[in-house]
């Protein structure tokens, strides 16, 4: 049994405490915007934000989320597109799109901690894999989102 808040909603799940949050979100809560990419914390496709921090949900047991607040891609744009999503659309970042939920959540957390990231900050802060190689456009989108957030 685990109780936590997902996208503003109190959620109780009767699952094993060691089930990774990723699979609880996808298979139990049908929040499939968060993706499975590697299952080993290597690619970041499963990135969600827990209490403000970008976290790889495939390496986060549900038991460790007890009482915490989880934000997924579905929650980010719930009441209108977030600045990061707007910037992503303006910059035409996605290609196949599979990793993009995780990338956007990672960018959201990066900008929350550093409203004006340099290219070097983006290199350090954005470690998720994109097999389509959308990095140059994601970099531009992060700079754009930083500007949008300030206005």
């Amino acid at each position: 049994m685990a109780a936590f808040i997902v996208n503003g909603r109190r959620t109780t799940l009767d699952v094993e405490a060691d089930m990774p949050l990723l699979w609880a979100l996808r298979d139990e809560l049908a929040l499939v915007g968060t993706k499975f990419g590697c299952g080993a914390g290597l690619c970041g496709a499963c990135t969600v934000v827990i209490d403000g921090e970008a976290v790889r949900s495939c390496q986060t047991p549900v038991g460790a989320v007890e009482g915490k607040t989880v934000l997924t891609i579905e929650g980010l744009g719930e009441s209108g597109l977030h600045a990061v999503q707007k910037a992503w659309i303006e910059a035409d970042a996605p290609q196949c799109g599979y990793c993009q939920s995780g990338q956007i959540m990672a960018a959201f957390a990066l900008l929350a901690g550093n409203p004006n990231p340099t290219d070097a900050d983006i290199d350090d802060g954005m470690t998720n894999i994109c097999r389509c190689g959308t990095y140059p456009r994601m970099r531009a989108a992060i700079h754009r989102a930083a500007a949008l957030i300030k206005t």
Binding site: G33, F36, T72, G77, L81, Q85, W88, I89, A93, P94
Partner: peptide
């Protein structure tokens, strides 16, 4: 022309095969 699928992919709304869920489905 801007891609039609970008908004779907910036919001997690694009459905990939792995996202499909059917009633009574086994994994």
């Amino acid at each position: 022309l801007k891609r039609f699928d970008t908004p779907l992919k910036a919001t997690g709304a694009a459905r990939f095969g792995i996202d499909v869920k059917l009633p009574g489905m086994a994994y």
